[in-house]
Simulated assay, not measured.
Amino acid sequence: MSLLSSVPVTTDKDERRRALSAFLRSRRERIQPDEVGFAPGGRRRTPGLRREEVAQLAGVGVTWYTWLEQGRDINVSAQVLEAISRTLRLDRLERNHLYTLAGIALGPAKTDCSALPQSVQKMLDQLSPYPAQVLNARYDVLAFNDAYRKVLIDMAAIPLEERNLLWLTFASDEWQCAFADGDSIKQHMVAGYRAALADHLGESSWQDLTERLLASSPLFAELWERYDVAAPSARIKILDNERVGILQMEAVNLWVSQQGQMRMTTYTPVDEDSEAKLHQLVNS
Rank of each mutant, 00 (worst) to 15 (best):
T66C: 12
G48Y: 05
V190F: 02
L197N: 01
L116G: 06
D208L: 15
Q259E: 13
R226E: 10
S274D: 06
Q126M: 15
V256I: 15
T10S: 11
D146L: 11
D34L: 02
V141R: 00
M1G: 15
D154C: 06
R243Q: 15
R95V: 07
D273W: 03
A58G: 02
Y148N: 08
W167I: 04
S217E: 09
L3W: 05
Y193I: 05
P218T: 11
Q32R: 15
V120T: 10
A196V: 10
S21M: 04
G59C: 06
R212M: 13
F23M: 12
T87R: 02
P269S: 05
D140Q: 15
I31L: 13
L223A: 09
R194F: 07
E94T: 11
Y99A: 09
L127V: 08
N75C: 01
K237R: 14
L219C: 07
R43N: 09
L101E: 01
D146V: 11
R263K: 12
R243M: 13
A195M: 12
G61V: 07
E94G: 12
W64Y: 14
S257N: 11
E29G: 05
W64V: 06
L116D: 06
S172L: 10
Q259K: 11
E29P: 02
T266A: 14
S21I: 02
F144T: 08
D140V: 12
V270P: 00
L152E: 04
D112R: 14
D125A: 13
T268A: 15
L68A: 00
V141Y: 00
Q207G: 07
A55M: 11
R44S: 03
V54K: 00
P129Q: 02
